[in-house]
């Protein structure tokens, strides 16, 4: 429903409203422009990150795909991201179902403990894991990085799935039971389809969290375990070449891709599952 339907704004097309539109437009440009600017810079034919570019070429993308270090970082990022997503999604979903089913004291405390990594400043988590992973010989290993990223991303899975379970109408289970389904059947046939969008959203968040994570990687990754953000950070610190802009563009494209999947999941959920109040991005 637009504003036009509200009688009081019809009285005069206010300058105030035009000002609001202008401010919003400018701020949206502010939000997107820095990201957009990286695209032409990454296609520069020159050695420097300047605009206007002295011509366009794919050379910095070629540089990216011919560089051992960037390729290794890409590989590491995907390996760590996918393993993190699998573990975090599995354990987070199981725990959410457990918290939903359980009827015991201390559930709030358990939930708080499990969400603690989400509110702890990442630098604190990073030094804690740096000390402890080195102590058990997992410093400078991909295993250590996967453990760290799993802990950081699991609260998103847990909270998203738990929220969708809490929105779940228990009468559906009674209906399933009255139709002769046993608990296992009603879980697979009723509960699971309804929480699948939340599980998928949680998995996307988990992957994005791991894929974007830099601070823990700064502390526990040696060059052999460098992920894309870590390699990018090293690149910025050493020499600001347009290859970094090319890497940034590739990461942005992946983020937008993840966002699109998330939107598709959300639209699907709105159409088929969720009540209309849960339509927040």
């Amino acid at each position: 429903m637009g504003t036009a339907s509200i009688p009081l704004s019809r009285q005069r097309p206010s300058t105030g409203r035009l000002l609001l539109y202008a401010v919003t437009g400018v701020l949206l440009v502010f939000l997107v422009a820095p990201i957009a600017v990286v695209f032409p810079l990454s296609l520069s034919a020159g050695e420097l990150l300047v605009l206007p570019t002295p011509g366009y070429s794919w050379r910095w993308y070629a540089d990216f795909f011919n560089s051992q270090r960037w390729l290794l970082a890409t590989y590491n990022s995907f390996v760590v991201g996918i393993l993190t997503t699998l573990i975090a999604t599995t354990l987070g979903t199981l725990a959410a179902i457990g918290l939903y089913l359980g009827r015991f004291r201390g559930k709030a405390l358990i939930l708080a403990l499990l969400s603690l990594p989400m509110v702890t400043p990442v630098i604190v988590t990073a030094i804690a894991l740096y000390f402890s992973l080195s102590a058990v010989g997992l410093g400078s290993t991909l295993t250590g990085l996967v453990l760290a990223h799993t802990v950081l991303s699991v609260p998103y899975v847990l909270l998203t799935v738990l929220a969708s379970l809490q929105a779940f109408d228990p009468n559906l289970l009674r209906a399933a039971a009255s139709l002769g389904a046993n608990p296992v059947q009603s879980f697979y046939r009723v509960v699971l389809p309804l929480i699948t969008p939340a599980v998928a959203t949680g998995a996307l968040f988990a992957f994005a969290t791991s894929f974007d994570e830099l601070i823990v990687a700064l502390f526990i990754a040696s060059p052999d375990q460098f992920t894309l953000p870590r390699q990018m950070y090293a690149g910025i610190r050493e020499f600001l070449s347009p290859t970094i802009a090319a890497a940034a563009v590739l990461i942005i494209l992946l983020s937008v891709f993840l966002l699109m999947i998330n939107e598709a999941i959300r639209k699907h959920a709105i159409r088929h599952i969720l009540p209309p109040t849960d339509r927040m991005p």
């Binding site: 949206l28 990201i35 990286v38 974007d212 953000p229």
Partner: peptide, 12 residues
């Protein structure tokens, strides 16, 4: 347009 930067990594 708000969500695109929201999903783009802080480092980028």
């Amino acid at each position: 347009l708000v969500l695109i930067p929201f999903w783009t990594s802080i480092l980028v």
